[in-house]
Structure formats: structure tokens, C-alpha cells
Design a protein around this nucleic acid. Structure first.
Lengths: 128, 128
DNA sequence: CCTTGACCTTCCAGTCACTGGAACCTTTAT
DNA sequence: ATAAAGGTTCCAGTGACTGGAAGGTCAAGG
């Protein structure tokens, strides 16, 4: 499989796939003309990466997850610890965004949104 | 006020304040020795920026908000439009994160997290 | 055989909003 | 006189790509 086909198959942009090779997440073989060749294991890894990224894992987390995935002696506890830590970060982020949303909603609600000068949003942003 | 004092007063790191000057959000005066001098208007602007950033507005949004804030002929509708757009993005982000959280929670719940090899998290990540 | 177009390659620069660090200057206190 | 605590500039790095330029390769059509 060439890079275009694997991109199609995994839904990842070719740029991203090259990038993943550059940072050592995958190691596709090469043909005589220099083209990358993706085998089943590569396809599998890329799929894995796409899924992990979609769940918000960082690239470094993905690297660890991939290592665990390939580790014959892994313990599921290690994976779970990683996932739990990530989950905590996701929840933290959600809280922050919800706080923002709450404030923004209030401000938007209170703003007339017409052509008058007075604006509660600006008033709030500038208030000491 | 020197940069350190204003940093203290606004809660923004000096690095950030210098950066805001570099990208043209503020224009503090300078004394003979090259030190920046922050007047009340600068302090006010920095406060405004800190607050807007805390609400998740991008730097470019902040630039626009600041311009509106200083615009004698602004319409509150313009501010509201900006805030609404941002609010929509925040909500979109929240949804995405909540979806991640849901999946992650399930995976974590199903994973024994012991020293056994089998791991539902890895299984899920690798499944077609 | 030539061309066209769709592939593929590498490399460099840009994104966003800072952040860290080096090298150096100024002010203040001892 | 010196040392600490402030200030200055400039350069590089972050994360995870993304865009674009310049060029090599391959299959099909005329």
C-alpha cells in the first residue's frame, strides 16, 4: 500500500502519516523508488493511533500506548493508569470550559446586541 | 509602573506582557533607560486582556474586543456577535470532550487494571 | 515518444500563545 | 565596591500538525 491508499483507509492525512514516521511512531518500508510501503502491521498501528488521538491522548501517550500494545509482558494496570490520568485531564478541561461557558452565557444574555454603545460584556471585561 | 509591578498587579507574567507589546496589543511608553512605563490606561488594557483570555477569547478576538472597547462609535451588537461565536466554539469543544470522557470512562471501567495482559482499552483502540 | 496528470519525495516555514534561557544593562541596597 | 534584583533584547522550543515549493515516478492517452 502506498501512502495515499493507507491515508484513505485510515482517514489520516498523508502529511500526518509522514509526520508520524518522522517522530518514530511507525516505520514503513520503502520500495526502490523511495516510496513508502505500508503493510498490515503499519495499517494496524495507524488505525490505533488515529483512534487514540481521537480520544485526546497526546502523541507521547500514544507512543506509550503503542509500546504497551506491543509489549508481550505488559500489565493492563499500566494502560489503565495512563487512561485514568488522561481522563482526569479531560475532566479538568471540561470544568474550565463549563466555567467559561457559564460566564459567557450570562454576558451574552445581558447584552442588548443592538447598535447602542453600552455593552455589559465590555463592562465586565474591564471591571476591576 | 515598571513591568514587574504591573505584572504583579494584573497577574500576567512579564513575558506575556512583553509579548503583548510585541504583537501590538499595548504600547507602553519608555523611560530614558529603556525601561517600559505602564500608565493607568495600560494597566486597564492588560487587565481587560487577562480577563478576556481567561474567558478563552483568542488573541485576535482580544484585539477586536479591545478595539471595540476603545471605539466611541461601537455597537454592542458587534461585541455580542463576537461573544456568541466564541460561546459556540466553547460549547462545541465541551461536546467533543464530553464524548471523549464518555468513551474513556467506559474503557477505564472495563479494564481490570491489574498485572494481566488482557486490556479492554488496548483492545478497543486496535479494533477495526 | 511525448505529454499530462496523479501520485510520490524532501525540506522549509507557519500555526498559537506563550515560555525558557542566554547575554547584557540599570538600579538599589549594603 | 559589590551583589542582588530588577530591567532589556534576541533566539529557540512547545504540540501536532499543515501548507507550499521544488522535484522525482508512474500509468494512460495520442
Amino acid at each position: 500500500m502506498n501512502i495515499g491508499e493507507i491515508a484513505e483507509a485510515t482517514g489520516l492525512p498523508t502529511k500526518t502519516i509522514r509526520y508520524y514516521e518522522e517522530i518514530g511512531l511507525i516505520r514503513p518500508a520503502r520500495t526502490g523508488n523511495g516510496y513508502r510501503v505500508f503493510k498490515k502491521t503499519d495499517a494496524h498501528k495507524l488505525h490505533f493511533l488515529g483512534r487514540a488521538r481521537a480520544l485526546g491522548f497526546s502523541i507521547e501517550d500514544c507512543r506509550r500506548l503503542l509500546a504497551l500494545y506491543e509489549d508481550e509482558a505488559r500489565a493492563s494496570g499500566d494502560v489503565k493508569a495512563l487512561a485514568l490520568e488522561h481522563l482526569a485531564q479531560v475532566e479538568e478541561k471540561i470544568s474550565q470550559l463549563q466555567a467559561m461557558r457559564a460566564t459567557l452565557s450570562e454576558l451574552v444574555r445581558d447584552c442588548a446586541g443592538d447598535d447602542r454603545l453600552d455593552c455589559p460584556i465590555l463592562r465586565d471585561l474591564s471591571k476591576g
